[in-house]
Design a protein around this nucleic acid. Structure first.
Length: 804
RNA sequence: GCCGUGGUGGCGGAAUUGGUAGACGCGCAGGACUUAAAAUCCUGUAUGGCUAAAACCAUGUGAGGGUUCGAUUCCCUCCCGCGGCACCA
């Protein structure tokens, strides 16, 4: 057996590919259709490439190679998301400057990526922490600023006490920091925001996108659209019960229950809470607001917690019937959603019901089920139904009543239809060092002034004490802070916060095709031709962070007229998770698998192929140390089959299997079912060992394995005298005639149970098939003494005889 | 609770539009080669029954029901795993 030497071959081909510039994209090529194949770029954290990187990148590269062989001009770039906490924390831990460690880590990571044998176009590499990149990140910021989509505001924001910085809503998961897992608290700070909320509706449109259902649902859930009404309540004085000239607006999706509203609740943070409360309740209210402030969101949003609240003493007037209802404050009402105030209808809302029971507030039934009965004494009835106790709206169903009541209030100026979203504006300021400075200065005379585009980049200074201290480290650097106003040339101070790194990565896919352009963020003509990204591959954990931000920024730049597409990623595929013993790999559990030792032993092709063999790509698989041996054996077998001389003994079987394999491999590649691609190639190899194989078939099958084992394929291709790189050849085509053989195995069932199998000609007629079936061995016994009711023939497959 | 997704041998997984369940691989068992081991090759491998061995028979895709000549696939009810959201009025 001729033994393949993977390491030797891999080094040889990687060198040749680089020297010949095989993977450098020709952007001016007009003969081939473009194909932008992109993977989510990594953080250079200083760790070695882990199995997740490999699983993300290697199969994605196989896809790119396949598309290249299918005749597309494939652009497959790579870069580094090099600003941000992973890089900064690494630097702090090792006591080096992030600029130094990041560069070192990138250089190391690049080497590792190259050793994977991927076809990245390294001439288009980007690093988000390089001034020539973040210059354009700042430019994008300025475009948003100029159009009023970036604003500065004091607001209660999420604060990670561990990372010592604020976080966007998307980066708080289950009340903890997305990066470090620490519990997030609230802080009142003046921060920069992007008006993402304005794009909520646009972000709900997925037209023309080929995205996983799951991801779309997660985003829709996150954006959280609900359609309802706003109602204006006049506030009445606690003792005189007369209007005091103030109003509270509430949002509800169930205006049909308005007649059942027996009290109102304001969020403790609501500005009117303190203002309207009566003297005897004031102390309670102040205490309650203070108590709320001390509690974090995890405690506050726990559903098992009993609801609490206090009376303000004031009343609200129900605009539909003039009823006076007490106004309470309670922390189960969120200040940040809707209007921060709700009308409480205990009979028809579970939360209000629990609260009303606890504080002995009245429960008034105004909706009854269409069928059956509700039991208001025991629990709330929350579904739609028919209105009762609602004056002229009685007997309407909920749907109709929502429309009618809103219109009625609208005519009195007391209400309107409204759409609410859970999505909030994107908080982009960070109190950390290792990020792109926000290009704004504050002038004593002119106030807030944008840095002119010609002065970009606002460079991140290097001589700074960058340890996190809760305020931006840049504030301690006078050379950076003190500047002159671009307007009046007077004294000014720079913004000292840096930008969320998710902002750096929200537009990077636009930069790749113009990575070498110095004077523009992107070559308009080129990106309008090369974008959107045709295939985007990465982990599902980015569904409600990076993938929302990237869509948002793309839509903004589209609306500002810079680009002519409004979605960044046409097709999205998530890689699954590779587990060990069915558990998530983690350093703390000590069940990680280090790729390096396996690559040393078996080579990167085998490693890649084993990852692809473990399961369907989007479902991942379970790693097994000895499983990879099967792939190594297969590679040896395959190499031997192609490398050694062979006599073709059974041409018919071989050709038929070959064409079936071409068909199957192509179909499965398109579905990202790489596991069955590998198994079909194994089946072919097993067959060809028996039948023998000719040189032409060898060439075809080597092409089929090329995307998933590129080095092996190049080696064999050269050996077969195939000429220039196999990746400049085209994908084989199959012939339908050859995929089918002349005979097939007819399965004979009696009452749906298999009783016999027999080989018959594929041209057999229905009658012949049924007759063959009836006269087959072992079938007779089941027909004897029975009455044949009918016989079903499925051409090419099966005969089922039904007897009684 | 809501949304999504999945449940198939000892293990990873395969199975077109409803048409032979368990492809391919791992592991395991037996054999060949070897002084021996590793590597490699060959044979077997869902479970149970009957066999000297096969043929053959029964059961079997989370559980129960339904539709159908025929269900891993379609429908209903339920259980469990995974991912996300979660007092959003």
């Amino acid at each position: 057996m001729s033994l393949y030497e993977p390491r030797k071959s891999e080094i040889k081909w990687q060198k040749r590919w680089e020297e010949s510039g095989l993977y450098k994209t020709n952007f001016k090529d007009t003969k081939h259709q473009k194909y932008y194949n992109l993977v989510m770029f990594p953080y250079p954290s200083g760790d070695k490439l882990h199995i997740g990187h490999w699983y993300g990148y290697a199969p994605a590269d196989s896809w790119g190679r396949y598309m290249r062989m299918k005749g597309f001009n494939v652009f497959e770039p790579m870069g580094y998301d090099s600003f941000g906490l992973p890089a900064e924390n690494y630097a702090i831990k090792h006591g080096v400057h992030p600029a130094v460690s990041t560069q070192k880590n990138i250089d190391y990571m690049r080497k590792q990526l190259m050793a994977m044998g991927t076809m990245y176009d390294w001439t288009s590499e980007i690093q988000t922490s390089a001034p020539e990149y973040y210059k354009w990140t700042q430019w994008v910021f300025l475009q948003l600023y100029k159009k009023g989509l970036a604003y500065r505001k004091k607001a209660p924001v999420n604060w990670c006490p561990n990372c010592q910085t604020v976080l966007a809503n998307e980066q708080v998961q289950d009340g903890t920091c997305e990066r470090c897992g620490a519990e997030v608290t609230k802080k009142d700070l003046t921060q920069w925001f992007f008006k993402m909320k304005e794009y909520a509706e646009k972000l709900l449109n997925y037209e023309g996108l080929n995205w996983p259902e799951k991801t779309r649902m997660m985003q829709e859930n996150w954006i959280g659209k609900s359609i309802g009404s706003e109602i204006v309540f006049d506030i009445a004085d606690g003792s005189t019960k007369k209007p005091i000239g103030k109003t509270v607006t509430v949002f509800t999706t169930r205006i049909d229950t308005l007649f059942g509203c027996t009290y109102m609740v304001l969020a403790p943070e609501h500005p009117l809470t303190l203002e309207i409360c009566t003297r005897e309740h004031r102390k309670n209210i102040v205490d309650y607001i203070e108590k709320t402030k001390r509690e974090n969101d995890i405690v506050r949003s726990s559903e098992t917690r009993e609801k609490t609240g206090v009376e303000t003493g004031a009343y609200a007037i129900n605009p539909v019937n003039g009823e006076l209802i007490p106004v309470w404050t309670a922390d189960y009402v969120l200040a940040s959603y809707g209007t921060g105030a709700v009308m409480a209808v205990p009979a028809h809302d579970e939360r209000d019901y629990a609260f009303a029971k606890k504080y002995k507030l009245p429960i008034k039934e105004v909706i009854i089920p269409k069928k059956g009965k509700s039991n208001i004494d025991e629990f709330a009835f929350t579904e739609d139904g028919v209105l009762v106790n609602s004056d002229e709206f009685d007997e309407m169903n909920s749907l109709e009543a929502r429309e009618k009541i809103t219109k009625f209030l609208k005519s009195k100026g007391k209400g309107k239809f409204v759409v609410q979203y859970k999505l909030r504006d994107w908080l982009v300021s960070r109190q950390r060092f290792w990020g792109a400075p926000i290009p704004i200065v504050y002038c004593d005379k002119c106030g807030e002034v944008a840095v002119p585009e010609k002065d970009l980049p606002v460079k991140l200074p290097m001589k700074v004490d960058f340890t996190p201290k809760g305020e931006s480290p840049l504030a301690t650097c006078p050379d950076f802070v003190n500047t002159t106003c671009p307007n009046c040339k007077g004294n000014a101070k720079r913004e000292v916060d840096t930008m969320d790194t998710f902002f750096c990565s929200s537009w990077y896919y636009l930069r790749y095709p113009s990575a070498n352009e110095k004077d523009i963020p992107f070559d308009e003509k080129r990106i309008n031709k090369w974008l959107p990204v045709d295939m985007y591959i990465g982990g599902p954990e980015h569904a409600c962070m990076h993938l929302i931000y990237a869509r948002f920024i793309c839509k903004v730049l589209h609306d500002l007229g810079y680009i002519d597409f409004n979605e960044p990623f046409k097709t999205l595929v998530h890689q699954g998770l590779i587990t060990k013993d069915s558990a998530k790999m983690s350093k703390s559990k000590g069940n990680t698998v280090s790729p390096d030792e396996f690559i040393e032993k078996y080579g990167s092709d085998v490693f890649r192929m084993y990852l692809m063999f473990m399961g369907p790509y989007s479902e991942g698989g379970d790693w097994n140390d000895s499983g990879i041996k099967g792939i190594a054996r297969f590679v040896d077998k395959f190499y031997d089959l192609i490398y050694t001389k062979s006599t073709l003994e059974d041409e018919k079987t071989l050709k038929c299997t070959l064409h079936k394999t071409i068909k199957k491999v192509g179909e499965d590649m398109e579905k990202f079912h790489f596991n069955t691609v590998v198994s079909s190639l194994m089946e072919f190899t097993n067959t060809a060992k028996r039948t023998g194989i000719d040189d032409d078939s060898k060439k075809q099958i080597v092409k089929l394995i090329a995307p998933i084992a590129p080095h092996l394929a190049e080696e064999l291709w050269e050996n077969l005298g195939g000429g220039e790189s196999i990746f400049n050849t085209t994908w084989p085509e199959y012939s339908d005639k050859l995929t089918a053989s002349d005979t097939f195995e007819l399965v004979i069932q009696v009452n749906g149970k298999v009783r016999a199998k027999t080989n018959v000609s594929k041209d057999i007629s229905e009658e012949e098939a049924i007759n063959t079936a009836k006269s087959s061995n072992n079938v007779n016994a089941y027909l004897e003494g029975k009455q044949i009711i009918k016989a079903i023939y499925v051409p090419g497959r099966i005969v089922n005889i039904v007897v009684k």
